[in-house]
Simulated assay, not measured.
Amino acid sequence: MRWIKAALLALVVAAGGAIAGWLYWQQQLDAPIALSASEVYEVRPGMGASQIIAELEARGIIAAQWPYQLLGVFEPQRLRGLRAGEFRLEPGMNAAQLLAKLSSNDVVTYRLTVPEGRTFADMRRLLGDAEALDHETRDMSDAELMTALGHEGELPEGRFFPDTYVWRRGVSDMEIFQRAYDRMASVLREVWQSRDDDLPIDTPYEALILASLIEKETGVAAERSRIAGVFKRRLERGMRLQTDPTVIYGLGEDYDGSLSRADLERRTDWNTYVISGLPPTPIALPGRAALEAAVHPAAGSALYFVARGNGEHQFSDTLAEHNAAVRRYILGEGESP
């Protein structure tokens, strides 16, 4: 009987030890991970659970591997869902929260805003400097990029929607260009379908060109449709649009920050002081508000406008009124009537 008692005692001790070990293991899993500050951790494609756990320990994110290794033995499904991506880990997470994060779609994202009124060249520079992108298009010419997008022979200016774009690490810049192109095509199609009936333009592309002029002329929301109205009336009367941003665009790298009379008289394909009608392409990436203004110009009688120097414009019906406004706001020679 003595051996039976000894065996029972051994079983009790072993069971107690097992329970104590299990409780200690659970305590380790429930305890906060070793991080002292927020940190981004990347699970690279092809990494297995054991490699991830070893790397987490090596980087000081977890204190030890063994609690997770045991978890892989007793609850292997907990480690099967780990996925590639960048994850932001926070102090205070326990093992369950850590593994849930590494198994989720809650990955780190990057964002970039392409402002309205920037050129396509500006957009390329912004994306070229963006982090965490696969810069697939960096060495492509504009023509090669458009061909890769499936639009061979199409000029890119104005074709990409200015917006805030969000991506995960490893996404190609080609995907961002595709999203921006598709978004502009969708918005332009929608806006064109709701256009006014009496416009002096005939195609969505002409609306895109006109919207780019409006975008570059003003950042004041209330003025967009008024400027569109001026352009509409000038086009209807066969007057040249005479808008400075087209001169600047045509000068390209020759633009030094100010416009001279010689610049205004210099013939380029875009200079609306010397060409009639619209320029051959947009001069910037217009936003939705400028597109809406282009197809819904405000009624009125103004044929001229000049910058007041505060971001707004003075609108005039006659050349005499306009010249007086120029003397006041540009030359500082007194009050306009």
Rank of each mutant, 00 (worst) to 15 (best):
E154Q: 11
V43S: 04
R125K: 12
I62M: 12
V114P: 07
V43Y: 09
S212M: 08
L11S: 11
A96D: 00
T218D: 10
I248S: 10
A132W: 08
L79A: 02
V107H: 13
E265N: 09
G117K: 12
L35G: 09
V40I: 13
A302K: 04
V295P: 15
V306T: 06
K232Q: 03
S212I: 08
G92R: 15
L188F: 13
I201C: 08
R234A: 02
G332A: 01
G81M: 05
R125H: 10
V107E: 13
E175W: 03
V40M: 04
T109C: 11
L127S: 07
T203R: 12
I53A: 05
A325M: 01
A294D: 12
L102G: 03
R288G: 04
W3R: 11
L259G: 00
L259N: 01
A64L: 06
D196P: 02
I52P: 01
F87C: 06
E223Q: 05
L98N: 15
T246A: 02
D139W: 07
L303Q: 08
L188E: 06
M1F: 13
L319V: 04
I201P: 09
V12N: 04
R183S: 08
L29T: 13
P280S: 05
A221I: 06
H135A: 08
R125S: 10
W270P: 00
A63R: 14
A121C: 06
W270Q: 00
I61Q: 11
L149I: 13
A14E: 04
A290E: 11
R288V: 11
A298T: 10
Y205W: 08
V107F: 12
